[in-house]
Amino acid sequence: MASFFTTRLFFISLALVVIASTLPLYVSGYVLGLLTVAFYFGVFAMAWDLLFGFAGEVNFGPTFLIGVGAYTAGILNAQFGWSVYLCIVLGALASVVAGLVLALPALRVRGPYFGLTTLVAVLMLQNFIVVFADLTGGEIGLTIPDVISIDAGVNYWIALGFMTISAAILYGLSQSPVGLVLQASGQDPVQAGALGFNIVKHKLAAFIVSAFFSGLSGALLVFYFGTASVGTVVDVAVGVNVIVSAVLGGRRTVLGAALGAIFLIVAGEFLRPTGELATFIVSAVALLVVLFFPGGFLGAALSREARS
């Protein structure tokens, strides 16, 4: 693990982050705004990969965790006017609690049922938001009085910093002994159990970590947009984007998930002039990658290294 600091991956990541941090000096606010959103999505995708790639559980409802974090933060700010930073922290914690409430029963069911449970959770959250419109803003969306900053550069740096720190923690965790146990549990739960690991405990821990980062990122995104709406942070389609990002970037790579998210959002934007076709093209690329490089961008590179 310590040897990570001498690997090519580390230097490439470091170089990318350094280059990325200088972008506000010479690119437009528009590009920065795009990347800001992409970075928050990157954290969503990385948190999701921790569950899918390592714990082996497909969470079809990443937006449940994201949405709870985002809306909790947004509602606290809108209703009580608490400070942005307090709201963000509370949003992340709410996401952890919601994740726990969901995962405790869901991890006991086997096979595809975990995934279905998470999907249902998203739909429930969506309905909750619509039904309790007075609190949540309903389908109009919640207008949030405060934002972190209105400066594109500042927002960009916050997002970049947040993504970098999240990546370091999540990647470090995935490569740590606990990460190995988690990976073993995901790959072969029976064998991991026979090796003496309480797989439910480890998967639950992974879920909590995933929930924390999803919720935190969701809350930050809300205070970037200045609005929380179902279409932005809860809708199943948003969750699909997160999943596609992670799969595109490479399962079980954590860092690849962030790359996938950035690719997906940036590509979607560059293809915007093609209108409806943009979604089609991005989906087609995603499909091709999944079909021909099931390891994703980074997965393909890493497994080549593994074989050498």
């Binding site: 606990v178 072969d188 003496g196 405990k201 079980r252 890493l302």
Partner: peptide, 29 residues
């Protein structure tokens, strides 16, 4: 087990290491 599914991105040694780890959530290093 008859069928093995080792961790393919880890070395043989690391695979054996996994079996030696305590069942703890706080073994970070």
């Amino acid at each position: 087990f008859q069928h093995s599914r080792p961790l393919n991105r880890q070395t043989v040694l690391e695979n054996i290491m996994v079996a030696l780890l305590p069942d703890s959530l706080f073994m970070l290093f």
